[in-house]
């Protein structure tokens, strides 16, 4: 069996201290393998967002280990963790987080700019990513002048631009109507199917979760059931 791209061991996250302590995650151990599509499902307050933040190295666990490609990352320096995030992960957020003052192309190429890629190279790869999502004609538009579905496609292009190993999608369809949601879902799963991208979707939408190969159902900081197979 290959090394899992992400694995956790006894992952605990506690907010606050003493009697006010809130145990958001109560010791989770699981693996996500390369090329998998995994949904983290649960109601709000179940700890699914906290779990995603830990997996995506945006937050540090109170105890336990997150390992990337078999290497524990908990002990790494913040600067190294930032670089890992930039190189390894793509993010799609519910609220898009597009910079309204910048063009679509500039928004898409932000991860490359952070990585220190030259402008020519950035724009070339940015246009390629936009073409892949059929948004190339909007490259020069301001990000504010787009519809919801278009915005999310720009976000996906941004998430793909650095050829990530893992694509994290946090309620990717939460702000979209049904028809647009389906388009975005098709794009995400198309990427998973055709390009072998590892997909981690955080959602409370059961229809979206059902399209994933594996579902981790969370409640009160624990995985209560695990559905699907690899």
């Amino acid at each position: 069996m290959s090394t899992p791209v992400l694995e956790t061991e006894n992952l605990v996250k506690v907010y606050g201290r003493g009697s006010a302590a809130f145990h958001a995650l109560k010791g989770l151990t699981f693996e996500i393998h390369r090329g998998e599509s995994v949904a983290i499902v649960g109601k709000s307050g179940s700890g699914k967002s906290t779990l995603m933040h830990l997996l995506a190295l945006l937050d540090e666990p109170t105890s336990g280990v997150v390992a990337l490609d078999g290497k524990p990352v908990t002990q790494l320096k913040p600067k190294k963790v930032s670089a890992l995030r930039n190189e390894t992960f793509g993010f799609v957020f519910q609220q898009f987080f597009l910079n309204p003052n910048q063009s679509v192309l500039e928004n898409v190429t932000l991860p490359l700019k952070i990585a220190g890629v030259s402008k020519i190279e950035r724009d070339k790869r940015g246009m390629k990513a936009l073409e892949q999502l059929e948004m190339a004609d909007k490259a020069k538009n301001k990000a504010t002048n787009l519809s919801g579905g278009q915005k999310q496609r720009v976000c996906i292009a941004r998430a793909l631009i650095n050829d990530p190993e893992v694509l994290f999608a946090d309620e990717p369809t939460g702000n979209l109507d049904t028809a647009t949601s389906e388009t975005v879902e098709d794009i995400l799963f198309g990427l998973h199917r055709d390009h072998g991208i590892t997909l981690v979707v955080v959602t409370h939408d059961e229809d979206l979760a059902a399209k994933c190969q594996r579902r981790l159902i969370m409640q009160d900081g624990e995985i209560i059931t695990e559905e699907g197979t690899r």
Binding site: A56, L58, R85, F97, I114, A115
Partner: peptide, 12 residues
């Protein structure tokens, strides 16, 4: 915007 930049790997 700062949050996004940091999430996308910009160091402090």
């Amino acid at each position: 915007e700062i949050g996004l930049m940091k999430a996308l790997g910009m160091s402090s």
